[in-house]
Structures are given as C-alpha cells and as structure tokens.
Amino acid sequence: MSDRSIQLKNSVNLKLVETGEKERLKDMLRQRLTECGWRDELKEHAKDIVRERGLQKVTVDELVKEITPKGRQLVPDAVKRELLAEIKKFLSAQSQ
C-alpha cells in the first residue's frame, strides 16, 4: 500500500471514530450478522472446535485463527454491500 493510501485510510478512520459513526456502523453490522444467522453458525463452529480440543487447551488466538477463514466466507454479499454503501454515504456527507 502506498503512503498516500495509508494516510487516507488513517484519516478516514479518525473521522469515523471521532464522530461515533464507527460504533454505529459496527452496531449495524452486528445486527445484520445476527439476523442472517451468521453469528449462530460461527458460534456453533467455534463451540465444535472448543469441544474437540478441550476447554483448557484452546486459546483465543488459536480460535480466532481457525474460525476467521470460515467467518469471512460466510458473510452474505448483501451485508457487505450495505456496509460499503453506508461508509460511502458517511464519507460523502463529511466531504460536503
């Protein structure tokens, strides 16, 4: 990534946090993922892993590493689109 795009990313992030928009977006995302069953499915998957390994033998790091690919893959396209549209809407409102 070029310096410029890193800079841009940081300033966007700064704006999102400053205005509280980031929390709002995260809330929306959390809601959508719960509604579409993503949360339940991933939770079951994580439970399976913990059961298989034994509660004492698995750390958060290992769990995250293991479920991340599946988690990313399961996010419905509609949710991704909606989130992207929300971010764009926020940015265009900010730049005016």
């Binding site: 890193i6 990313k9 940081n10 992030n13 700064l14 946090v17 400053e18």
Partner: peptide, 12 residues
C-alpha cells in the same frame, strides 16, 4: 480517536 491507535505502526 487520537490515542487508541498503535503507537508503533501509527495506524488504526
């Protein structure tokens, strides 16, 4: 926004 960033890589 100012403080909760990685002090090493500087990014969010």
């Amino acid at each position: 926004a100012k403080w909760c960033v990685c002090s090493v890589c500087g990014g969010h």
